[in-house]
C-alpha cells in the first residue's frame, strides 16, 4: 500500500489509516483477526480513542504483539489539564503500551474550547508534559465541522503536528467558509502539518430516528456509509486524491475489508473524475433550480 509522509512528523503513514473503533463491535477473537487482516494489507497507522467503547482494550493484545509496526494515534475530548492527564494514563494503561505516537485533541467545535485548551491549566499543558515524559510523541487535533477553527488552532498551537477533518465529494462541492477544508489542506501543506481525512465513506445522515430507530440501523457508523465495493473504491480514490496524507477507514467492521481492498488497489483519480463526483453529489442533493447542465 502507498505510504505518504505524515507532515513533518517523520512518520511515513500508509494512505489508509485503520479506524480502530471498528474493533469495539467485535469479540476479542474477531478483533484480533481484523487487526491481522489490516496488517496483512500493510496498514501501519492506527487510530483509536477512549470514547470508542472497548476499542482500546480490544486493540491492546495485537498492538502489543506488533508494536513496532504500528504508528498509533489516540485522542482526548478533555479540555483541561487534570482530565487530559488522567485520560493519557488511562489510554496507555488500557492499551498496555508505554508511548502513544500521536495524541490528538478530539472533536474541537468551539472557539472557547480552544481558549481553554491553550490556557494555563489547559489540556495542552498535560499533553506537553506527557510528551516531555515520553508518553506521547506527536501532538494532533481533530475537528468535525469547522475549518476556520482548525486554522485558528494552527495559529495558536505552535507544536501542532497533525489535523484530522472530514473530506468527501459532498463537502468538497460546498463553497462556504464552513466547508473550506481546501484552505486547511493548503495551510497544512505549507507548514508541514500532517492531514488525516475522515468521513470519506459517508453517504449522508441517517434517516431520523422516527423513520429508522437507532437499533435498526444496518451499520455502526455515525452516518450512513457507502457500502458497495465500487463506490467504496471511488470514495477512497477521491479522498486520497485530495492531498490528504492518509484516509481513516470507516467505523463499521463490515466495511473494513472492502476499504482495505480499495486502498491496496488504488491507482489514483484524475481531476475530471473528481469533479464528476463532486457535481454528482451536488445535484443529488436537491438542486435549486433544476438544471439541464453542469
Amino acid at each position: 500500500m502507498e505510504t505518504r509522509a505524515l507532515g513533518d512528523t517523520g512518520q511515513e503513514s500508509t494512505v489508509l489509516t485503520f479506524g480502530s473503533i471498528a474493533l469495539n463491535w467485535l469479540e476479542q477473537e474477531g478483533a484480533n483477526q481484523l487487526v491481522e487482516l489490516v496488517l496483512d494489507h500493510g496498514v501501519n497507522h492506527f487510530d483509536v480513542a477512549p470514547t470508542y467503547g472497548d476499542a482500546e482494550l480490544k486493540l491492546g493484545p495485537k498492538l502489543r504483539q506488533y508494536r513496532d509496526d504500528i504508528f498509533l494515534g489516540c485522542k482526548t475530548q478533555e479540555r483541561e489539564y487534570e482530565g487530559a492527564a488522567r485520560k493519557i494514563d488511562r489510554s496507555l494503561d488500557r492499551l498496555g503500551i508505554d508511548t502513544i505516537d500521536l495524541y490528538q485533541i478530539h472533536g474541537l467545535e468551539y472557539e472557547d474550547e480552544l481558549d481553554t485548551i491553550t490556557a494555563d491549566g489547559g489540556a495542552l499543558d498535560a499533553i506537553r508534559e506527557a510528551k516531555d515524559d515520553g508518553k506521547i510523541d506527536h501532538i494532533g487535533l481533530t475537528s468535525h465541522g469547522n475549518p476556520e477553527l482548525i486554522l485558528d488552532a494552527i495559529d495558536r498551537i505552535d507544536d501542532l503536528e497533525t489535523v484530522m477533518f472530514p473530506l468527501n465529494p459532498v463537502v468538497a462541492g460546498k463553497d462556504g467558509d464552513e466547508y473550506d477544508y481546501e484552505a486547511v489542506l493548503e495551510r497544512c501543506e505549507a507548514e508541514g502539518i500532517g492531514t488525516l481525512g475522515i468521513k470519506a465513506f459517508a453517504k449522508g445522515s441517517w434517516p431520523s430516528t422516527d423513520e429508522l430507530a437507532e437499533a435498526d440501523r444496518p451499520y455502526a457508523n455515525w452516518y450512513e456509509p457507502v457500502d458497495t465495493p465500487e463506490v467504496i473504491r471511488e470514495r477512497f480514490d477521491f479522498a486520497a486524491a485530495q492531498s490528504l496524507d492518509t484516509v481513516v477507514s470507516p467505523g463499521d467492521p463490515k466495511l473494513v475489508a472492502m476499504v482495505l481492498d480499495a486502498a491496496s488497489r488504488s491507482t489514483g483519480m484524475g481531476e475530471a473524475r473528481q469533479r464528476a463526483l463532486i457535481e454528482e453529489a451536488r445535484h443529488n442533493d436537491s438542486p435549486v433550480p433544476e438544471q439541464l447542465h453542469h
Partner: peptide, 10 residues
C-alpha cells in the same frame, strides 16, 4: 468532467 454525471435531477 469524465464521466459526465447525468443525475436524476438532470
Amino acid at each position: 468532467l469524465d464521466p459526465v454525471p447525468w443525475t436524476e435531477a438532470h
